[in-house]
Design a protein around this nucleic acid. Structure first.
Lengths: 217, 217
DNA sequence: CCTATTTGTAAACTTTTCTTCACAAACTAC
DNA sequence: GTAGTTTGTGAAGAAAAGTTTACAAATAGG
C-alpha cells in the first residue's frame, strides 16, 4: 500500500484530502506543519508528500527542500490556493514533482498522485549504483556474508542474521547493516524491522557472483 | 627469453651446461653454491633453476627448499651423478619439478627444460585470484586509475605513472604499486624497473570493467 | 666526475574502518 | 507489571589503510 504524507495547516482541508485518498486505497498520514513533516519522514518512509505552499512557520518551499534532502525517494506534490507561475517554477526547480492548484477535482488529484507514484517507481529502479560505494560494500567479508544470507531468505530480522553468521555481538552486525542501508543495498521494513535486498542490492550481489565465477575460472 | 639459473659446485660442468643452454637460446646464470643461488633469486627472477643434489655446504635439497620458498614460480630441476630413488622422491615432494641423472644426453636436458617452462607457464596462469585480494586492490580509486593507466600502455615506469595521474608525491604511488605487486596484479621488470599487468592483473581489470558496465546499465 | 633525476625505504602521522562496551527504548511472554 | 528478548545509539578504542616526510641508493646526462 502506497504511503502519502499530507502537510497542511488547514485542518479541515487536511482531513478531507486524507479521506479522499484513503477511500482511493492509499495509506495517509497528516501533519499540520513543515516541522512536523520533517520529523515524520525521519522515522517513516513515504512514497508521496502533498505539501501546501502557504503555511505559517516553515514555508512550503522550505519544507519541500528539507523533504527532498531527507527522503529523496519521496515524490513531493505542492498544492496552493493562489497559483503563481514563479512559485510553480521555483518549486519544480527545488525538486517538486508536480503542482496542484485549489480548487481541484478529485480526478485531477488521483491522476497526479498515480503519476507521482509511477515516477517514484522508475526513479527507484534508476538509482545509479556508484562503483565506489559498491566496492566499499563488497570489500568487507562480513558484509558479503550478510548480503548472501539476506538474499537466501527474504526479510530477515537482526537476530536471525546475527545467529546465522554466528556472531556474538549484535552491534557489530548493526554497524554493517547500517553501511549497507546507507549504500542503498539493503532496506529495512519500518513495521517488522526486517532487512531485505533492494533492487540495487540484488544487482550488487549479482556483481559479486559474476566476479567470483570469473576469478575461479 | 627464458632465464635459467645453474647451481653446481663443479665449475667445469657448470660451464658446459651453461654453453649448451645458451646455444639453445636460453639466458643462463651460473652460481657455485646454494648460498649464492639464494642470493641471486632475491634480486632476479628465473624461470628455471637446475640444481646439483650433491654440493658441499648447503645441500641441493636445502637449496631446493629455499628456492621454492623465495621464488615459487621458478621451476627447479634437480641433477645428480648418483641417482637414488629415495632422493628423487624426496626432491619431488619438496617441490622439484623434475630430476636428471648424469650422464645425460642434451636432448633429454632440452626436453625436460622445455617441459618445465611449459609447466611454469601453466602454473602462472592458474595462480588463483582470491576475491578478498581482488576487491582490496579495486576499492581504492587511485589503484583503479593505476591499473587502467598501466593497462593502456605496457611497461610504464614509476615517473610515467606518477605524472600520468598528476600526483605530486611519488612515494604515494609506490605505496599502491607495492600493494598491487604483492597481490600479484602487477609485476615489475628487474632490469628497467617498469611495471606491467600480470595475467591475473588483466583478469582483475576485466572484472572491474564488467562491474562498471553492469552497474551503469 | 659531478649533478640531477629516478626509484626506493622507513618511520611518523592522519584518516578511515571496524570492534567493543555501556546503556536504553520497545516490544513479548508470563 | 516485570523479566527477558530484540533492536538500537553513542562513544571509546583498536586496527587497518593511506599519506607525508626525511633520507638514501642507483642511474643517467652533461
Amino acid at each position: 500500500m502506497k504511503k502519502i504524507l499530507i502537510v497542511d495547516d488547514d485542518s479541515e482541508f487536511r482531513t478531507s484530502l486524507s479521506c479522499l485518498l484513503k477511500e482511493a486505497g492509499y495509506y495517509t498520514c497528516t501533519v499540520p506543519s513543515g516541522k512536523n513533516a520533517i520529523k515524520k519522514v525521519t522515522s517513516e518512509n513515504f512514497d508521496i508528500a502533498i505539501v501546501d505552499v502557504i503555511m505559517p512557520g516553515m514555508s512550503g518551499i522550505n519544507t519541500l527542500i528539507e523533504l527532498r534532502r531527507l527522503s529523496p525517494k519521496t515524490q513531493v506534490i505542492m498544492i496552493t490556493g493562489f497559483p503563481a507561475i514563479e512559485d510553480t517554477v521555483d518549486a519544480i526547480k527545488k525538486g517538486a514533482c508536480d503542482y496542484i492548484s485549489k480548487p481541484f477535482k478529485s480526478e485531477e488529484l488521483f491522476f497526479k498522485v498515480r503519476r507521482a507514484i509511477e515516477k517514484a517507481g522508475i526513479e527507484q529502479c534508476q538509482d545509479k549504483l556508484d562503483i565506489n560505494q559498491t566496492l566499499d560494500s563488497l570489500v568487507n567479508p562480513l558484509r558479503r556474508y550478510i548480503l548472501k544470507l539476506i538474499s537466501s531468505r527474504t526479510n530477515m530480522r537482526l537476530t536471525e542474521i546475527t545467529r546465522g553468521l554466528d556472531i556474538a555481538d549484535h552491534t557489530k552486525v548493526i554497524f554493517h547493516l547500517k553501511l549497507l542501508k546507507e549504500a542503498g543495498i539493503i532496506e529495512q521494513d519500518n513495521d517488522d524491522r526486517s532487512y531485505a535486498l533492494t533492487p540495487e542490492g540484488k544487482k550488487v550481489l549479482d556483481c559479486l557472483r559474476i566476479m567470483e565465477n570469473y576469478l575461479s575460472e
